[in-house]
Design a protein around this nucleic acid. Structure first.
Ligand SMILES: [Mn+2]
Ligand SMILES: [Mn+2]
Ligand SMILES: [Zn+2]
Ligand SMILES: [Zn+2]
Lengths: 158, 158
DNA sequence: TATAAACTTGTATTCATTATAAACAAAGTT
DNA sequence: AACTTTGTTTATAATGAATACAAGTTTATA
């Protein structure tokens, strides 16, 4: 569980103002477990903030990522970047068919993280530990041993 | 070290033809250690194949990813997707400043991989294990404890 | 209340990626 | 060999997420 306060604090510590929009975006990021995209955040909040602009969502996300408070997982088959406010080491499992992303806890990621920070020489700003494939539900829907020419849903990529 | 033959075989096994373009793209992917983008592949090969189209590069990459022979690491701060023909479990370290991506070997990733395949219920098609930050060289170039309003090079994201 | 700085918003722009259709090439058929 | 089918490449157009920009709004400080 991510604390909204942690995100807000990182904004504050960077000398940035806590506006109602930023507050709401941080709250949504911290509360949600669905690894939202910029558009998803925008759609969810615009009922509460009718004047909200998509640009503000992108701006806020960019700041949070730069501060290391949020990670970008990238495209999950739907052509847009998904964000994760949980920066604790964990694995994300993305389904390339229904585009849901779930968390998968693993003891090894912790070690991994420490190893990299210690031995790589990099100043690590964030991570993108994401496995992609077909979730159990979507495996049902698909006629099983999917043959080569099965033209399933369009591309994926980064 | 990745074998070109492995990539070509996965095309063959999928019933696809080994054209000179595909052969060259697979060769470059297998040989290169720089996690190239579609454009990088295109630029590199167009001297040898003056008629090569960027569309062919994208098409071939899409097929290889769908077959699980290549992983998409995504945007490394330069706005385009980077590809990795090494599907063995390993960590990729991306520099958000110079956009280079290097491999980092870790024993833990192996365990991680096995754990996910065994316990998640997902049919895993690929992975995107990427840490991003500043490489040792770029840490020099940057005035150290980079303050908030330091407007460095533009965004990053997925 | 001024004045400046930070922030939001609406819109225009960019550009990586995808879609489309026409030319080309290989393999099979008569 | 000529015809046909099917897969591939190429050139170009279209898409749309992300970004840039300029104008308006809020907040801070004097
Ligand atoms: Mn997560
Ligand atoms: Mn790699
Ligand atoms: Zn699914
Ligand atoms: Zn660097």
């Amino acid at each position: 569980m991510v604390e909204t306060a942690i995100l807000l604090d990182s904004l504050r510590k960077a000398g940035l103002r806590i506006t109602p929009q930023r507050q709401a975006i941080c709250e949504l990021l911290a509360t949600s477990h669905e690894h939202p995209t910029a558009t998803m955040i925008y759609e969810t909040l615009k009922s509460r903030f009718p004047s909200l602009s998509l640009a503000t969502v992108y701006n806020t996300l960019e700041v949070l990522v730069r501060l290391g408070a949020v990670n970008v997982l990238g495209n999950a088959g739907d052509g847009m970047a998904h964000y994760d406010a949980d920066t604790e080491p964990h694995i994300n499992l993305a389904c390339v068919s229904c585009h849901k992303i779930v968390d998968f806890p693993s003891q090894y990621v912790q070690f991994l993280d420490e190893e990299i920070s210690a031995a790589s020489g990099y100043r690590v700003l964030g991570a993108r530990v994401l496995y992609y494939g077909l979730c159990p539900e979507c495996q049902q829907k698909t006629p099983m041993a999917r043959r080569r020419s099965d033209h399933d849903d369009r591309g994926n990529n980064a």
